[in-house]
Design a protein around this nucleic acid. Sequence first.
DNA 1: CGGATTGATTCGGGTCTACACGA
DNA 2: CTCGTGTAGACCCGAATCAATCC
Length: 906
Amino acid sequence: MSSSDDDTPLVKDRANGAKSEDRIPKNVDRALDKQLPSNGHVEPGVSIRMGPVEDMDVDTPQTNGNANGKRKARTSLTNGKSYKEASSSEDDDKPLSKRRRTSQKQAKEDSDTDLSDVPLRVRKPPKATAAQIGESSDSDTPLNAKLVKQKEIIEKAAEKEAKSIRNKEKTAAKRKPKVISESEDDDVPLARKRKQPAKRASNGVQKPDSDSDVPLAKKKPQPKKGKAKAEPAVPAKKGKGKAKAEQTEQDKEAEDEEESYKWWEDPTKGDGTKKWTTLEHNGVVFPPEYEPLPKNVKLIYDGVPVTLHKDAEEIATFYGGMLNSTHNIENPTFNKNFFEDFTAVLDKTGNGKDKSGNTVKIKKFDKCDFKPIFEHFEADRAKKKALPAAEKKALKAQKDEAEAPYMFCMWDGRKQKVGNFRVEPPGLFRGRGEHPKTGRLKKRVTPEQIIINIGKEATVPEAPTGHRWKEIKHDQEGTWLAMWQENINGAYKYVMLAANSDIKGQSDYKKFEKARELKKHIDRIRKDYQRELKSEKMVDRQRATAIYLIDQFALRAGNEKGEDEADTVGCCSLKFQHITLKPPNYVIFDFLGKDSIRFYDEVQVDSQVFKNLKIFKKAPKTEGDDIFDRLTTSALNKHLTSYMPGLTAKVFRTYNASWTMARLLKDMKAVGTVAEKVKAYNDANREVAILCNHKRTVAAGHAGSVEKMQDKIDGLRYQVWRTKLMMIDVDPRMKKKKGAEFFERPEDLDDDWVKQHQDALVEEQRQKITKKFEKENEKLKADGEKEMKPKELDERLEVAEELAQKFKKENKTGKVEAEGKGPTVDKIEGNIDKLNQRIETMKVQLEDKEGNKEVALGTSKINYIDPRLTVVFSKKFDVPIERFFSKTLREKFDWAIKSVDEDWDF
DNA sequence: CGGATTGATTCGGGTCTACACGA
DNA sequence: CTCGTGTAGACCCGAATCAATCC
């Protein structure tokens, strides 16, 4: 850069190395100005959406000016690779790029150091550092600190909880009502519990129970203590078996009653933090206990079948069941993590034994052979599949009945569906992308880890026999019914209501209302960030640039991530290497975003943004350094909130997605068939999905099915050509009339192709005839009659032979005899039209398929596009809503379907 | 006090399976 | 009509966002 001496950074090192100056020297901009087309003044109200400054458009969103249409060179579809490819090509720099901030203390010390002395790539000590060691008495080595942390997560939880309650009490006055915990409440007698199936009880503490095999569902609901208004959460269904028909009818009735309540018209709903007044539910369903393998199925170690303790064996089955998933088992990290956790359990439970009872020490992963386990499962699966339909049905009915009590809860007296009442079963953690913890053992969750949230008056569901819940809460600000902490990352898992519940509908509604609210502020926000792109304060300039990117390209906020998570980024966490600048004003994004989905896009940006990014990437910054080193997501959101309460980065995604959809649907003309309208809608949907970078991996059979379709289209085109020639056969004058060109065979259908195609047609005919013949014979045989002779088949096959001859003759003479009875030119014209029609629709289908092969439409439909837009479209264009929303989606968006009319506008 | 952690909620693609669809 | 087969959508559970709290 020309002005290198002026650029000498006063960089304060923030652990990461380079940090940009507080103030941006004037000459930096000037220097850059020389290299860039100057950016004229931006008029108030100007949308800076996309495109070079020169052709900036002045439309505001409401009118029609979204410049998504102006998005240049969007290449994600053609250039995008899945993370698998993407990450493998980045493998080399991966370990190095993992640099993070040091602890506060260290950062402070560093800040006084002159930059030139600070190596940019400071390797950090393992994460469990300063804070943790200081907090957990020094006796632990840093290495152990991690483990200690995990343990503490569990062990300290109670203490923390108590603390947090204390804290809440302190601050409660203004925000949170007190949360009452009954965790100390010890009055649940362990021995005298309601009986549970024997299987429920785990790990020894179990009391044999005479009654234990009575299915849970048959039991009477327990008497309610403080029952007043609400029905028992789930009234015991009358008899099983045919109960289904009855049940659905009953449900329908219930729904009809509920129908009258429209929360979206209820002014008391929506605001306020108290989510419920009364809450009743039956808790959670645990996964079935582990069932040991049959004696003859064993892990083979170093050629020797070994008997394992059942706990260890269970883990072996997790791996064994995955042998068909090369994705996992060929991943070294996965195998290493798995084996570490596997051997840890082996150490605890004792190692395996061979058949004479000698200990077999399992110490090398490579010597483990899980195949017998895998094959056992495969066989099992096959057996299950082969089960008679009736039995399958019965099995399913049994399961449904057992789970029925958990499917619904009573929320403020209304019956609501529960989303995920099943506790997640143990297994091997996969994680997405290159997750450092992939392959780790996800442990079985015990009742002792589960916190139940339920109304004070409600009967608390009983823990399985011999167990008790970790805690009972009555937190009316929470929308969850149960919760536990998972052992891999310490993440919280919640049992919440289904998407079609009132509470979820309400928050969905609020989300879209918030996005609509943004409409009123977006002009001001855009104007402001446009101005601040030139701010002298680095903080402001970075923030403005970030908002620009979030607004234009629908980037996510990009929170900081930890050492032991997959290395993915969003806007604020973009690194040096994720952005490539291509003068005059192109930017190439290439990074792994949420779920390690690759974001690849080549775009034009405002020239000031281009300049800024150049500054943000300036030396000494290099690979691995933050582009927005002065910006955090919380600072960003804090700023956004000042424009509008509740405005955060993610709102822009909702806003831009819904707004784009609104624009596209509005511009649409209500013509054509229903199918065409649906197609048009899906096209709009797809545009939104592309905006949001919602991708999917190309289906395995995609290439094949595309080829098939193409073949079919070619076949039809060939048929069109043949049919045209028939015209000449009927009326030779047509040749002159239509012109020679009309009768030419499409170039790509060359002689070779025609031969092959003809052969295929003939063969197809043969097959058809043969099959029919065989089938008829079967039938004759079954009826006890005489079978037809092979000679009969030969005779029938004559038809195919004639066809072959016909083709041969056609090839030779270049003429085609007219087919069908009483062929006329008019009839033939009609046939051609029909064929062309079919070709057209198939072409459209093919394009659709190709366009959708790596775009997932579902996510944007479910989460980003205001459902009311779809409802309006459906009404205006008279397309049944069923064409857009599946049954579940219709339930989820019930509020939208019922609340808007044709002229509702986003 | 600003960064780290906690906790709750939304978002997200993969997998599995029932079911529609075409030969 | 039925028989595979391909696919939409339910289900699963991991990964983000973001406010509140902690330290």
